[in-house]
């Protein structure tokens, strides 16, 4: 046991996803050793992010507080008639990095999971249906995770949107730049099943 303030910091850090007790300890000791300014800046950044970031009222992606819409929804060059549906804001961030999507996002806030007590009413599905209706959306791209819950959520949305718009989903298969012989079987199975004509 170290001094109480150190223990408190370790406990707080260990609550973060992907951080175990040992890593939390290392991070805490690093923070203590770093210049006071640096530690202060970190604390300030955490507080600032927490206070100044909210959700876009249209797509529920992250946006700066005071801005009703996120930077994607505000962008006049983005096609409002194409919506890419994702589970979490982090998925939207990942897709944004690809720089390919010219449409907008819709962040559901999770996936159907009765195990965790999450039903359709707990996700922003009604809001999505409403957007599709209101904005004359041409295409909804389902970019869900390949988990059982992700698949179920995608099927549910597909059912609810039946006849209202075109619903597509992302292809699943080999990651770019990867070696075929290193791919796991599930990935290979999907890659084979979803093979396309050579163009």
């Amino acid at each position: 046991m170290g001094p109480q303030p150190l223990e408190d910091l370790v406990t707080a850090l260990a609550r973060l996803p992907g951080i175990g007790r040992k890593t939390a300890q290392r991070l805490a000791l690093y923070v203590l050793k770093s210049p006071a300014q640096e530690a202060q800046a970190l604390a300030e950044a955490i507080r600032g992010a927490r206070e100044n970031i909210g959700n876009c009222t249209r797509c529920f992606n992250l946006t700066e507080r005071g801005q009703e819409l996120c930077h994607v929804c505000r962008d006049p060059n983005r096609d409002q008639a194409v919506i890419c549906v994702v589970e979490e804001a982090s998925d939207a961030l990942a897709l944004e990095r690809s720089d390919l999507l010219r449409g907008t996002y819709h962040v559901l806030g999770g996936a159907l999971s009765p195990l965790d007590g999450i039903g359709p009413a707990d996700l922003r599905i009604d809001e999505l249906i409403e957007r599709v209706r209101r904005d004359a959306v041409r295409e909804v791209i389902l970019a869900h995770n390949a988990s059982a819950e992700g698949e179920a959520t995608a099927e549910y949305i597909h059912q609810r949107l039946a006849g209202q718009t075109t619903v597509t989903r992302l292809a699943r298969g080999l990651p770019a730049g990867s070696d075929l012989d290193l791919a796991d079987r599930t990935t290979l199975t999907h890659a084979l099943q979803g093979r396309t004509t050579f163009q």
Binding site: P114, L115, A121, A148, E151, A152, Y156, Q159
Partner: peptide
């Protein structure tokens, strides 16, 4: 596991026919 939890929750929350179909199909 998910479907069994869904069945158990049916009495407690608004039944959603579409969701019942989804878990059966999955």
């Amino acid at each position: 596991t998910q479907r069994n939890h869904f069945l158990r929750q049916l009495g407690q929350r608004r039944a959603d026919a579409a969701e019942a179909d989804v878990w059966a199909n999955q």
